[in-house]
């Protein structure tokens, strides 16, 4: 936490947004049938009542990414185009999800495609005051502060905390909208009460029969992984032009561990052939495998995999009820 926090009045916020809109591609949560992050048009559309249905993952780890182009004998450089983007109103869980993806694509691996998108983005958070829905469980996921700017909602105004150089610069540039304050942000401001997972270590529950409660409802539709802000599994395929098959592109696209094709190899052998194994793989990867390797939870407790599930499999409840 910084010693100096800023105050941004709510009516001033609209002017601020209209101002940054000229310089940045500004994404804000807008509620229509569901809440989505969309390019800002009218600041009055902003809606903080619920979390966005889809995460902003697709802006950095894109659904389809051309890894390279090939002209039959040489690799052609891929132009990594990116715009200056501002994401306004990200929740703590989503910010941590971006942190985890930064860790994977920028720290562990030096992925130029992700980095080029991510480097130019400014993340402005909006701190939840209470649990957003009955499914989220971020309290037990040890979330950290990871943002450029964070807004704390104080009914008439926002307290703004800057965490990074990027955030400080933005405030400096638009300082006419911000007022300095002596307020100290305490745990009271950052605490969000949600439900919890009551087990620290789920490794010994792998063969527990209660998993069947979830597995029996699972349709292997992979909605959970498509909506997850942290899922980073992907596949790589080649594509060619129809009139000139030597011109090729290698394309990286999202893939889902809930599908059989995820582990099927030549001669139609599938390693994770059963729905049971696939269902548990996702949960164990989120809660255990990633933690074992990297000491952080991959899951950030946003609950999207449950809200987005067609059969609403509440795996947190299943884990909590295991004896």
């Amino acid at each position: 936490m910084n010693l100096v926090v800023y105050i941004l009045k709510k009516d001033v916020m609209y002017d601020f947004l209209l101002d940054i809109k000229n310089k940045f591609e500004t994404y804000v949560p807008i509620k229509k049938d569901i809440t989505r992050f969309k390019i800002l048009d009218n600041p009055k559309d902003i809606d903080f009542s619920e979390n966005s249905y889809f995460p902003v993952k697709e802006h950095f780890f894109r659904k389809k990414e051309v890894i390279f182009q090939f002209n039959g004998s040489n690799f052609l450089p891929v132009e990594l185009k990116s715009k200056n983007k501002i994401f306004f109103g990200l929740r703590r869980c989503d910010l941590n999800a971006i942190k985890n993806q930064d860790f994977i694509f920028m720290k562990q691996h030096n992925d130029p495609y992700y980095t080029s998108q991510r480097k130019k983005a400014v993340l402005i958070g909006y701190h939840c005051t209470k649990a957003l829905n009955k499914y989220c469980f971020c309290e037990s996921m040890n979330l950290t502060d990871y943002y450029d700017l964070m807004l704390f909602d104080k009914t008439n105004y926002f307290l703004v905390d800057a965490k990074t150089e990027k955030g400080e610069n933005l405030i400096r540039k638009y300082k006419k909208y911000f007022k300095k304050s002596n307020y100290k942000i305490s745990d009271k401001d950052t605490y969000i009460k949600t439900r919890k997972i009551n087990k620290k270590d789920i490794s010994k529950f792998y063969d527990h029969k209660d998993w069947d409660k979830g597995i029996n409802l699972c349709l292997s539709c992979s909605a959970c992984t498509e909506m997850c802000p942290t899922c980073y599994c992907h596949e790589i395929h080649d594509n060619t032009e129809i009139n000139n098959p030597r011109n090729a592109k290698r394309i990286r696209s999202w893939s889902s561990c809930q599908l059989k094709e995820f582990t099927s190899v030549a001669e139609n052998h599938t390693f994770r052939d059963t729905k049971e194994a696939r269902f548990k793989h996702r949960i164990y990867h989120q809660l255990q495998y990633f933690k074992e390797r990297n000491k952080i939870n991959l899951c950030t407790g946003c609950g999207r995999c449950i809200t987005g599930c067609p059969t609403k499999i509440d795996w947190v409840k299943i884990i909590n009820e295991m004896r």
Binding site: Q108, D111, Y232, E235, I236, C257, Y289, R293
Partner: peptide, 18 residues
């Protein structure tokens, strides 16, 4: 033997229990 795309520990297709 597993299905692999990236071979650098990123795509996760080849994961065996972590």
């Amino acid at each position: 033997e597993r299905l692999m795309y990236c071979s650098i520990g990123m795509c996760c297709h080849c994961m065996i229990r972590g």
